[in-house]
Design a protein around this nucleic acid. Structure first.
Lengths: 345, 345
DNA sequence: AGTTAAAATGACAACGCTGTCAAATAGCTA
DNA sequence: TAGCTATTTGACAGCGTTGTCATTTTAACT
């Protein structure tokens, strides 16, 4: 019934340690021995016991994914990306949703790490941006990978455990797209202020305006959160203002915000895109399920998180498995759908 | 740095076993002893090592959540519900997305269980409906809880590890709501045929029609899948047919399907709800983000999954923790929003 | 063939906890 | 207070692996 490493060892005529070497893909095992052992493993249908490995080994065979993000699509993509890598490496994934605002966040994460002796951690925004958490992790000596907004900077030391999404570039591209369509009064409904992605996207938007000699108008920026509701309110606020006559395009902080803006426009009987262009960010399934479908910037969260996991494993497993194909900066690319069009006269 | 149970024992002046008893909430520990130990635990900030507990104990401190469902909102709710219970009980959660179609599904799940020595499993539809998987679990002697569509039947033996969502009742209620609004030609865009929820919802719909002396019309039923795209196609097929003149209401298999129907109606310049009423199922956040907002049947997936976990733990942990407040049948309740209205003349 | 370094393998003690079972203590009753 | 039972505690082995380090085998040289 229960097959242990000892059974396999006997069956293959080698020592337990050799079997251990084989299943851990350690070097210094002759091909012939390797095959013998693998055969025995197959024949007995041996499953290494995770608990025992975790206990005996230096670090456990589990990594953690920490997030505080209400966007289900985002989370699922993140999970699946990391999970696929974990499967590949024979690791388990411990998911940990949490509340970034919470006082003792660091303590909670530290507890989780200790309890499960996690081999590493993948941190998603906004938690990846919180210095106290990073400090705690450094102190604990746990390896981690941060998902961040921005691009791989000069600071190579820090960059070594960061994966960037270039929101600046994405915002720039979308804004330019709108400008090319003739829009001159482009509003921006921002996501949460404290998220780096918000500042990055805002900066990209501003830069595009500047590069095309369009004056930046503070009144065209509405601060909100990354939610549908916030998009509704933001768009309403912008459009109900005397500005309505001027604004011909709205950039939503993400797809949900854009969908909210779409909703608000509908309430106000504004035709999209004839009277108003709207675009989002991220290209979540959501953006294909609105009417009209959203122009947005495609961001492959599952691929991104898979690379985050790769990067983590390349550090965790020491020398072997030096994955050199890890992309550390992702630049979303624009997807033009039906929610943007030429500026009205 | 690393605090073991032995350190705590010394600090509290008791044996390791006693500390073990305390942290496992075993009976037969004098209050005074208990307090001493708890104090030591606090003072040393002791974190039990999961791997060691898993290895030494009879079963591990982890349960699994198995799913094959493309709906991100559904999954996240499931995860969060189970997770909250796990936290309470000090268990870990191993998530396992998979593909129900896959040949060797049972083997894959069996492997997962053995590797992690899972204490139990929560199965969501449609996997919870697959007999081969259930048989495998029974054979392995692993406890599990199945999330099912239907209601707690007479077969008490089986019911002991099932949580039901009464989709029949929900469909009945929604259909009746539409009938009350004067609708006589109500179409149904079904989800995946092989899901029990589809048959249940269809049955509820039929029953409501029958109870109100409305003839069931086969042509008003469209078979599809639980996706937005399928909703679009289903609604198109129904409405473009010569039936268009007749159909005044559409029941979507779930909120996504309903949103798809909404989308299709928009493409065809049909006003909702003036010309056509549409309703969904589940009340996912999605249903509040369409325009107009969807009438649907509220189904608290997080609460449901939390109860599934409760039920699982009540069986896992033997006698202690006999949770008697477990709800085993949930009946969604209708939420009327803007997508349904009186039947047009 | 003889020597030496390098590679492959094995013996055995941890890893940190819980199960088992025996020992000690407390709470009774007569 | 002795004598008995019920309750509480402790000693110790063992869960199934991996790390360490010693040993054996192979390869690579003179």
């Amino acid at each position: 019934m229960k097959v242990t490493i000892n059974d396999v060892a006997k069956h293959a005529g080698v020592s337990m340690k050799t079997v251990s070497r084989v299943i851990n893909k350690e070097p210094s095992v002759r091909k012939k021995t390797y095959d013998q052992v693998m055969l025995a493993v197959k024949e007995l249908n041996y499953q290494p016991n995770t608990a025992a490995r975790n206990l005996a080994g230096t670090s456990s065979f589990a990594i953690g994914l920490v997030y505080d993000n209400p966007n289900a699509y985002y989370i699922i993509d993140m999970q699946n990306g990391v999970l696929s890598r974990c499967k590949e490496e024979g690791y388990e994934l411990v998911i940990h949703p949490c509340n970034a605002q919470q006082e003792d966040m660091q303590a909670e994460i530290a507890t989780m790490i200790k309890r499960s002796r996690l081999a590493g951690l993948v941190l998603t925004p906004p938690l990846s941006e919180q210095q106290p958490i990073i400090d705690m992790l450094d102190e604990l000596g746990v390896s981690y990978v941060r998902l961040l907004s921005g691009h791989n900077e000069d600071d190579a030391e820090k960059a070594r455990n960061c994966i960037y999404v270039d929101d600046f570039a994405a915002a720039y591209e979308i804004t330019e797209h709108l400008i090319t369509l003739g829009h001159k009064h482009i509003a921006f409904v921002c996501g949460d202020e404290e998220h780096k992605s918000t500042t990055e996207r805002l900066a990209g938007y501003k830069q595009a305006l500047a590069d095309h000699q369009i004056a930046f108008n503070e009144a065209f920026v509405h601060n909100g959160t990354y939610s549908f509701e916030s998009g509704v309110q933001g768009a309403k606020a912008l459009l109900e203002d005397g500005n309505r006559k001027q604004i011909t395009a709205i950039l939503g902080g993400n797809d949900e915000v854009a969908a909210g803006a779409l909703f608000a426009a509908r309430l106000m009987n504004i035709e999209i895109p004839a009277q108003l262009s709207i675009s989002g960010f991220e290209d979540s399934p959501f953006s294909r399920q609105t009417w009209p479908k959203l122009t947005t910037a495609h961001q492959a969260n599952d691929v991104i998180s898979e690379h985050a996991a790769r990067l983590l494993f390349s550090k965790t497993r020491g020398s072997r498995n030096q994955d050199k194909d890890i992309i550390t900066t992702f630049t979303p690319s624009m997807v033009v759908r039906e929610s943007t069009g030429p500026a009205p006269q």
